[in-house]
Design a protein around this nucleic acid. Structure first.
Lengths: 225, 225
DNA sequence: CCTTGTTGACTGACGCATCAGTCTAGGAAC
DNA sequence: GTTCCTAGACTGATGCGTCAGTCAACAAGG
């Protein structure tokens, strides 16, 4: 195997830990947790099998540290964007055409969403790690699940298009809208498993539909804040 | 092991297949795909190891069939609800674009969302199967990931509460709102990996923010009925 | 500058457990 | 007796984690 320089100084070692983490990230993102082996990570890092264990306790510990580090970086970026939007709030002019001028209070929110999407865009592996979805199960599962979920999106899209045709709903990318709706429902349903927020199915679905149809703001027309 | 009655008739066999599927559903939902073994399923079904292979080709085939069956049942239920809401409301559906929005146009949508949430509520295992999330990785991972995602929700919730305090955003369960926002962003980001819808980060985040703030309808807000 | 000793980063074969899938004996139904 | 289902022992493959050994880097002594 290609020999690598031995890490001697503390900086060397820290950097090697980082290298391993980076290698692990790409491999985990590609194959999912179960399908990646320590050998894969070692290969990607240009190290031998055993060396991984010199730096990390176990496969699990490596994975957990990776997740934490990545999430931390993302949160930091978001906080930055929100903060800088808040300070330069009144001068913010990135409103969308057709929408009423947003009060300055929205600016950090807009900035945070934007920063998140951009961060994800720039780092596809991160998305896979944080929203690992079916990818943890393997290729054929992923396809099968995508197909199944696609059916729900199809159904929803039909409703959306109908509403758009009737002029009730704003024109726009119906597929994306439909996807947003179905995934939002799914995520909230999943959340109910873990967290009991005491909302009945009726309350939750009303909340959801109203959110989707009317949005979260009090008045569509801007009010001075 | 306690012998069970041999399945003789076709109905018997079909019913045994169903039993296995039901057992598999609960075990897969509990432990995730990788962590459940055929032995677990056999035990849950009250059969022996080998019998599972009499009815199913492989673990994978069993899992895929399970997913398809479950998703099919859910879709059927949703379609029913939407259909009955559509007939129950005004039958004006084939209108041309540009007409004033008929009040009943939303009804199928509301009914579909409601039916979905209720279906999920009544079947927690199904939610785990369809939105398998971290659960495919095991208990400790699930907790770790929940904690990490909780941090993002915390951050978002602070923004939401701020907007609510300023009277810009409607009062409501800030935690649920925050969760809806973060998960929606995550899901759309994840979707971008697979499907290239040609939307820039800017377009997408504007779309998202506008959806969340103003909703999808043309008329921003009508008086609550 | 060269030799020798010590440390600890690195290697990779191997032990061991796990588990998907196979095989065959046994027994119920007919 | 024959067919068909059930049981569960068995096999083989896979992969985590270990460990005995190797060797680069550096230090001390000559």
């Amino acid at each position: 195997m290609a020999k690598i320089r031995r890490a001697v100084s503390e900086e060397d070692k820290a950097s090697r830990r980082q290298d391993i983490l980076a290698a692990a990230k790409s491999v985990f993102a590609e194959n999912g947790y179960h399908a990646t082996t320590i050998a894969d990570i070692a290969r990607a890092a240009g190290l031998s099998y055993g060396s991984i264990y010199w730096y990390y306790e176990s496969k699990e510990a490596l994975f957990l540290e990776l997740m934490s580090a990545e999430a931390g970086a993302l949160r930091e970026r978001i906080a930055e964007a929100a903060a800088s939007a808040a300070t330069g709030a009144t001068a913010a002019t990135t409103t969308t055409a057709g929408q009423p001028p947003s009060p300055g209070a929205e600016a950090p929110f807009r900035a945070a969403v934007r920063a998140t999407i951009e961060f994800y865009d720039a780092d596809r592996d991160l998305v896979k790690l944080l929203f690992r979805d079916a990818f943890a199960l393997g290729e054929s599962f992923e396809e099968h699940l995508a197909r199944i979920q696609g059916l729900f999106v199809d159904d929803t899209e039909r409703l959306v298009i109908g509403l758009q045709r009737q002029g009730v709903m704003q024109p726009g990318p119906s597929r994306v809208v439909a996807f947003a709706i179905t995934s939002l429902i799914g995520q909230l349903a999943h959340r109910r498993l873990v967290t009991d927020d005491g909302l009945s199915a009726e309350t939750l679905s009303d909340f959801l539909v109203d959110l989707l149809l009317h949005g979260l703001l009090v008045q569509p027309r801007s009010a001075p804040a």
